[in-house]
Computed example of a mutant assay.
Amino acid sequence: MQQCGPSSPSCSTSDCFPLGTLNTAACGSETSAEPQKREPAGLFRMRPTVIFYGFYLLCFGLGVACVVCVCLWNSKWRGGFAWDGSSLQFNWHPVLMVTGLVVVYGNGAVLYRIPLTWGQNKLPWKLLHAALMLLALVLSIVGLCAVFDFHNAQKTPNLYSIHSWIGIAATALFAMQRRSTVLGQVWVAYVQWYQFIHPPGNRKSCMLSSHEDYTSTGSDNGTKDFTKIANGSQGAGV
């Protein structure tokens, strides 16, 4: 190894120390030469998925616990369930509304966010999503029918509180959303069916043939009309 001259700094050039054995601590560097510990890439990528599943299972468990508590409350402390216009029929209302508009609707809405559905065929998950949303709508409608029937049997006015109006508005908006979704899916299915039975090449040829027929018919008719007019004008001039 070459000796450093008196004018050269002790640790300034690579001639004094090779790069592989350079002691940064001796040169006054603030960074340490020890390699930094890094987490594995797989574990780093799995962390958001694990956190999501943890919160999802927590929310799902709270939803199930809410339904169980409402059922126990109405069955043990409010006399049970019936469909005879009595107060027991009213007990169906909180159970069905909580189950439909809170638990089933919430799970159907978050279904596409589950990492299990990523990178897979979306058709089964779309069908499950539609089934959960339809079930939530049916449960909410039956819950409203229970409370309206109870009010009519007891000669109680309907829609006499803010709670009633908010519930009706939420159910109506939910039904309108389901209707628009179904119409949109029907339209998409129709477009896909039309594209399947009429490939792009066939559609272009059909449009060209129709355009040619229309223009040829129109030109023929126009030529005949112009000939009639010309003959008529010549006859009048003679």
Rank of each mutant, 00 (worst) to 15 (best):
M1A: 13
Q2V: 12
Q2E: 15
S8P: 01
S10V: 11
C11N: 11
C11D: 15
C11S: 14
S12I: 07
S12M: 06
C16T: 07
T21C: 13
T21F: 10
L22C: 10
A25Q: 10
A25I: 02
G28E: 06
G28H: 03
G28Q: 01
E34L: 10
R38T: 14
E39I: 15
A41Q: 10
G42V: 13
F52M: 04
L57F: 13
G63M: 02
V64K: 02
C66L: 15
C66T: 14
V68A: 14
C69E: 13
V70H: 00
N74P: 00
N74M: 15
S75N: 14
S75Q: 09
K76G: 02
K76P: 00
G79V: 01
G80C: 03
G80A: 03
W83G: 02
D84T: 01
W92Y: 08
H93K: 07
H93D: 03
P94L: 06
P94A: 00
P94R: 00
L96H: 07
L96T: 10
V102R: 00
V103A: 08
V104K: 00
G106R: 06
N107D: 13
G108C: 08
V110P: 04
Y112A: 04
I114F: 06
I114C: 15
W118Q: 10
G119A: 02
Q120K: 11
L123H: 11
H129T: 09
A136W: 00
G143H: 00
A146I: 07
A146K: 00
V147Q: 05
A153T: 15
A153L: 08
Q154I: 05
K155W: 07
K155Q: 13
N158G: 02
N158T: 01
L159T: 08
L159Q: 02
I162P: 01
S164A: 12
W165D: 06
I166D: 04
A169Y: 02
A169V: 03
A170I: 14
A172H: 03
A175R: 05
T181F: 03
T181G: 14
W187L: 10
V188R: 04
V191T: 10
V191R: 13
Y194H: 13
Q195Y: 05
Q195G: 07
G201F: 03
N202Q: 14
N202V: 15
K204M: 02
K204Q: 07
T215S: 07
T223E: 12
D225Y: 11
D225Q: 13
D225T: 15
K228V: 14
K228Q: 12
K228W: 04
I229Q: 12
I229Y: 08
A230G: 09
A230S: 14
A230Q: 12
N231Q: 09
N231F: 01
Q234D: 11
